[in-house]
Nucleic acid binder design. Structure first.
Length: 389
RNA sequence: GGGUAGGUUGAGCAGGUGGUGAGCUCCGCUGACUGUAGAUCAGCCGUCUUCGACUGUGGGGGUUCGAUUCCCUCCCUGCCCA
């Protein structure tokens, strides 16, 4: 094998083909991986700890899942990536034989900010489980992801929220660029793709610099990170415009990390995004919020206790075929575990169905009207800004 | 029948031994959630004309400038004894 950093081609078992659709920069594509193909635009349910919370692999399959996301940081702490490797790798461990993308732990640099210290070489965490000192570097992240055996690994990056001063955003971006090169050097598996991550906050010039730096490296895909972390919708849209313009005709698959809501998908697909992941569909499901052809429902609201119909008459998921709103509302009140599964089954199905509808609309030219329908259901363009605790 | 401990806002409690009881936890109502330390978090949760005001400590009466507190009486509940 040639040195990893010099390899410009996607690993042998990977392939991404796409075609322009005539709708903005939107593309229709197909990404092949060792564990199966992915139709794009596509959404990846998040299974941080080797499980999409409350769902079985069979549930995921039935919902139409083509690829899931799992997490380097969490799995390295528990049960440990070496243990997962000994048990045959992540696919066998969790009994999911479809494609898996692993996040690098970079997001935890952001979400666990109060438990870590960043330096130019890497990040030291105090484990959220037992406080023990944990070191994550680009090399270490790749080592863990290779042990897990995901189909797609992500580079270790640093993201900052939009409230940070400009020099802090720039410094995190430059670290991300250095770390990107180190990740490429560290990779050793030919059956695992590696995606670079563009950072730069909401500053157009920094984003252009970051696109130039990351797209100039031989990554198998390009991710856009550092969005949906507190900036306004307008800022996210503008940043996606800048990134799309800067990427130009780059043929690699494009992944917008951590997005999103139904209206967000349209914003991003129009700007050339092929892949999404987000905890939103599964997290809000566990908190009683169900996404439907009539918009968002909060099943904790009293009125649902007396409604005999399904969550969404337009949905064919297990939940909607078999259970009433009244029943699910009852399960939430009683804190019965089935509530979480039924709600998650529905929201994942809704989200993946929506992706399918988006692909269909791109194919037949009805994207714009679909976007308007969904925007009407979900309150226009959604919240003015993306909040975060 | 005798004794004893109690009765505080839907429930369970805290507090208060003469000087402004609306405090907590449930329940309930509503909202939030965007590369998951999240089956979580936040607000509200007696009434009203809600930056404030009023009402409320089982019922009634008394003492007092002032009573949840002291006195009388009645009602209700738990436990013990007959």
């Amino acid at each position: 094998m040639t040195s990893a950093i010099g390899r410009a081609r996607i690993p042998e078992s990977f392939d991404f083909t796409f075609r322009a659709t005539g709708t903005g920069r939107a593309r229709l594509g197909r990404l092949e991986t060792p564990h199966g193909g992915i139709d794009t635009p596509q959404f990846m349910p998040v299974g941080t700890q080797a499980t999409v919370k409350s769902l079985t692999p069979a549930d995921l399959r039935t919902a139409g899942t083509q690829i899931i996301l799992a997490n380097t940081y969490h799995l390295s702490l528990r049960p440990g990536h070496e243990r997962i490797a000994r048990l045959g790798g992540l696919h066998r461990f969790m009994s999911w034989d479809g494609p898996i993308l692993t996040d690098s732990g970079g997001f935890q640099v952001f979400s666990l900010a109060h438990l870590r210290q960043v330096d130019d070489d890497g990040v030291t965490f105090a484990s959220h489980l037992d406080g023990s000192r944990q070191r994550l570097t680009p090399e270490r992240s790749i080592e863990i992801q290779e042990a897990l055996g995901s189909d797609i690994a992500m580079t270790f990056d640093q993201l900052v929220d939009s409230t940070q001063p400009a020099d802090e955003v720039e410094r995190a971006m430059e670290r991300t660029h250095h770390w990107a090169g180190r990740c490429l050097t560290a990779r050793s598996r030919a059956d695992q793709a590696l995606f670079g991550i563009v950072q730069g906050g909401v500053d157009a010039e920094l984003r252009r610099q970051s696109v130039a730096a990351i797209s100039g490296l031989p990554f198998d895909g390009i991710a856009v990170g550092g969005l949906s972390v507190g900036e306004s919708k307008a800022q996210m849209t503008e940043t996606l415009d800048v990134v799309a313009e800067a990427l130009g005709s780059d043929p690699r698959v494009r992944y917008l990390m951590g997005v999103g809501s139904p209206p967000d998908f349209f914003t991003a697909v129009e700007r050339g995004i092929d892949l999404f992941d987000c905890v939103l569909p599964t997290r809000v499901a566990r908190n009683g919020q169900l996404w439907t052809s009539q918009g968002k429902l909060n099943l904790r609201n009293a009125r649902f206790l007396d409604e005999p119909g399904p969550i969404d008459p337009a949905c064919g998921c297990e939940t909607c075929r078999n259970h009433s709103r009244a029943y699910i509302a009852h399960l939430f009140r009683a804190e019965e575990l089935l509530a979480y599964r039924l709600a998650s089954v529905h929201n994942v199905t809704y989200t993946l169905d929506l992706m399918g509808r988006i692909r269909g609309a791109l194919a037949d030219g009805s994207f714009t009207s679909l976007r308007e329908v969904v925007a009407a259901q979900f309150g226009g363009a959604g919240p003015e800004s993306i909040s975060r605790r």
